[in-house]
Amino acid sequence: MTQASATDSNAPVGTAGSDRATGASIVSRLVETLRASWPAIALIVIIVAAWQAISAAGLVETYVLPSPWSIVHEMVADFDLYWRASLPTLTAILLGFAISVLIALPIAIGMVYSPLLQRAIYPLLVLSQVVPKVALAPLFIIWFGFGTPPKIFMVVLIAFFPLVVDAVVGFQAARPESLMLVRSMGASRWQAFWKVRFPWALPSIFAGAKVAITLAVVGAVVAEFVGADQGLGVVITQARGNLDTVAVFAGIGFLSIIGLILFACVSIIERVLVRGSRSGRSFEAAGSL
Rank of each mutant, 00 (worst) to 15 (best):
G145M: 04
V168D: 02
I141H: 04
T148M: 15
F140W: 03
F161G: 06
F171W: 07
I142Y: 12
L157S: 11
A159V: 05
V168F: 02
G145Y: 02
F153T: 02
A167W: 08
G147P: 06
V169T: 15
M154H: 13
F146S: 04
F161K: 03
F146I: 06
I141Y: 10
L136I: 15
I158S: 11
P149K: 15
G145W: 00
F160S: 09
K151R: 02
A137I: 08
G170S: 13
A135T: 15
P150F: 07
G170Q: 07
P162W: 15
P150N: 08
I141Q: 04
D166H: 07
F171M: 09
G145T: 04
L157H: 10
I141V: 14
F140A: 01
V168G: 02
P138A: 00
A137D: 04
F144M: 13
L139T: 13
G147A: 15
P162Q: 10
P162K: 15
V164C: 13
I141C: 01
L157F: 13
A159K: 04
L163Q: 12
F160E: 07
F146N: 03
A167G: 10
P162G: 05
V164M: 11
W143N: 04
A167Q: 00
V169D: 10
F161N: 09
L157G: 00
L136G: 07
V168P: 05
I158G: 03
W143V: 11
A137C: 01
I141E: 04
A137F: 01
A135I: 14
F146K: 07
I158F: 11
M154E: 09
D166W: 10
L139E: 02
F140K: 00
I158R: 06
V156C: 06
V156Q: 02
L157K: 14
A167L: 13
V165D: 00
A167S: 15
I152A: 09
V164D: 05
A135W: 15
L157W: 09
G170D: 06
D166C: 05
A135K: 06
W143R: 07
M154I: 11
L136W: 12
D166K: 07
F146H: 04
P150Q: 00
A159E: 01
D166M: 01
L139A: 11
F144K: 02
A159N: 12
G170Y: 07
P162M: 14
K151T: 01
P162T: 08
I142F: 08
V165M: 08
V169P: 05
V164K: 09
V164L: 09
V169H: 14
P149V: 14
P149D: 10
V168C: 06
L139M: 13
I152D: 08
W143Q: 09
F144W: 14
I142R: 05
V169R: 13
F144Y: 13
V156M: 11
W143L: 09
F161C: 04
F140D: 01
A137R: 01
G145Q: 05
P138C: 03
V156T: 08
G147I: 10
M154D: 14
P138S: 11
F153A: 15
P149N: 12
I158D: 03
M154N: 13
L136K: 02
G145D: 09
V156L: 12
G147M: 12
A135F: 07
F140L: 03
P150C: 07
P162V: 12
F144V: 11
